[in-house]
Amino acid sequence: MNLTVNGKPSTVDGAESLNVTELLSALKVAQAEYVTVELNGEVLEREAFDATTVKDGDAVEFLY
């Protein structure tokens, strides 16, 4: 899956889609429990991480 992460191209191997929690784990995001996630310009509530799917071509920003 090809994404733009914090403005840079990134690839997650072996996945066509992941939820936000899985993406944080796959990318080994440090202190993931404290990060705010913006997906395609929309800031996500932490409670929505498990239910929100990240797909090929999406833009993700991790805000600390």
Rank of each mutant, 00 (worst) to 15 (best):
Y64K: 05
T53R: 11
K28L: 08
V35C: 07
A51W: 14
N2I: 12
K55G: 06
E47I: 07
T11A: 08
V20P: 00
L27H: 03
S17F: 13
A51R: 14
N40A: 00
A32S: 12
Y34C: 14
A30L: 10
Q31R: 08
K8V: 13
A51D: 12
V37N: 01
L3M: 05
D58Y: 03
S17W: 10
V43M: 10
L18Y: 07
G14Q: 07
S10L: 15
S17E: 10
A15W: 13
N40Q: 00
S17Q: 11
E61M: 11
V5F: 03
Y64T: 09
A32I: 13
T11D: 05
T53W: 15
A48I: 08
M1K: 02
D50E: 10
A30E: 13
D13S: 14
K8W: 10
M1A: 03
G41P: 05
E16R: 07
V60M: 05
E42V: 15
D13M: 14
S10H: 15
L27A: 00
L3E: 00
K8Y: 11
A51N: 13
T52M: 06
E42H: 13
S10D: 06
L18K: 04
L39N: 00
M1T: 05
V5C: 05
A30P: 14
N40K: 01
L44P: 01
V35I: 10
A26H: 11
K28G: 14
M1P: 02
A30W: 14
E22L: 07
D58T: 02
N19Y: 06
V5D: 01
A26R: 07
N19L: 07
S10E: 14
Y34V: 11
V43N: 05
E22P: 00
Y64M: 09
Q31V: 09
F62I: 15
L3K: 00
A51V: 14
L3D: 01
L44S: 01
E47S: 11
E22N: 08
V43C: 08
L44Q: 00
D56E: 10
K8S: 08
F62V: 12
T36G: 06
A48H: 12
L18F: 08
T11H: 15
V54L: 11
D56N: 10
R46A: 07
S17A: 09
S25K: 14
N40W: 02
A30R: 06
L63M: 12
F62G: 02
A26P: 00
Q31T: 09
F49C: 03
E16C: 12
E42C: 12
A32E: 08
L27D: 02
A59V: 15
E38N: 14
Y64A: 08
D58R: 00
K8L: 11
K28Y: 06
L27P: 00
N40S: 01
L27N: 02
K55T: 08
L18V: 07
V12L: 11
K55Y: 10
F49N: 02
V37A: 03
R46Q: 07
N6W: 00
P9L: 09
A48N: 13
G14W: 14
V43I: 13
E47W: 13
N6F: 03
K28E: 08
M1N: 01
V43R: 12
L39H: 04
P9S: 06
D58G: 00
E38Y: 15
L3V: 09
G41V: 02
E33W: 11
N6T: 04
N40V: 02
V37G: 02
V43W: 08
N40L: 01
